[in-house]
């Protein structure tokens, strides 16, 4: 840090040595840490409270923080239905990822590399579902399914497939966006080298291009998974009592008598989120998530 010349005179230097606690730099540093620390307390408080309550006895049938005593019984009291629903949500999100990657990666490659006018319009079209509030998407798909049912006899509302189609709709922009971002940055000279060395275009795609853009695919897939797994508004319209996702189950449970065993399930989800983050950081690197420009 530069100090103006006059401050370097002997008395000032002495003064600084005698009051080392409150230099401007230290005060700024302390302020920054208080701010950042406060932010993390604020950010993590609801999650910490759930985990604590999941291991605690309730008071008058309600979960409280801090809990009066610790117990593991809520984890034992998790009903089969909760786990079935959680499993269904995970399977749905996984299927959404598979479909979105299968559609989104070719779409992104096509978007960046086709030489069409009006590519900007197509990019906007692929982004459009993000701009539509999820509630609106939910209602719109419900009505679309009614019309399809009138025409074909197949009703998508309340079925697993119906949820899958709607979730692919809201999740696809994230895969397309992430992959477009990496394909644009990708240096095509690597592909040219492979072609010159005699690789066919298809094997170049498989062995050069796809590995190079993999981080974008992983981060897009992560966002797609989360979009489906976290979604409440769309699933709320398309769920039935037989086929509902975990957020819908939780939403409905919060309106009525609340079962503390749900806190145990929520704790499992929170733990899984942190583990997933760790794995992603280890395998792909957190930067892929940041760069994808969702």
């Amino acid at each position: 840090m530069a100090t103006p010349l006059h401050a370097r005179s002997a008395p000032a230097a002495q003064e600084r040595r005698s009051t080392p606690l409150f230099t401007e730099r230290r005060v700024n540093r302390a302020l920054a840490w208080v701010w950042v620390g406060g932010f993390f307390v604020f950010l993590l408080a609801p999650l910490a409270v759930i985990v604590a309550a999941a291991f605690g006895e309730p008071v008058h049938g309600r979960a409280v923080f801090p809990p009066p005593a610790l117990t593991l019984r809520w984890f034992g009291a998790i009903q089969g239905e909760y786990l079935t629903t959680l499993g269904r949500s995970v399977a749905l999100a996984a299927a959404v990822v598979v479909v979105c990657v299968a559609l989104g990666v070719p779409a992104a490659l096509g978007l960046v590399r086709s030489r069409w006018r009006g590519k900007a319009a197509l990019t906007a079209l692929f982004r459009a579902p993000v701009q539509i509030p999820a509630v609106v998407t939910g209602v719109a798909f419900l009505q679309l399914y009614y019309i399809v049912a009138d025409a074909t006899g197949w009703l998508g509302a309340g079925t697993w497939t119906g949820l899958l189609v709607a979730h692919v709709f809201i999740a696809l922009p994230f895969v397309v966006g992430s992959v477009v971002a990496v394909v644009q940055r990708f240096n095509t000279s690597l592909e040219e080298a492979a072609l010159i060395l005699g690789a066919s275009p298809w094997s170049t795609l498989r062995r050069v291009t796809l590995p190079a853009i993999a981080p974008g695919i992983y981060s897009g897939a992560t966002y797609a998974f989360l979009t489906s797994f976290s979604d409440l508004p769309v699933a709320l319209f398309l769920s039935s009592s037989d086929v509902r996702t975990f957020p819908v189950l939780l939403f409905q449970a919060m309106d009525y008598e609340f079962d503390p065993a749900l806190l145990a399930v929520a704790t499992i989800i929170i733990a899984a989120s942190f583990v997933a983050m760790l794995l992603f950081q280890r395998w792909v690197g957190i930067n892929a998530l940041l760069r994808s420009g969702k």
Partner: peptide, 15 residues
Amino acid sequence: IVAASFVTIVIKVLG
């Protein structure tokens, strides 16, 4: 922060 953004808002509201 990223992991916290992974957790659905339904769970955060519960907290």
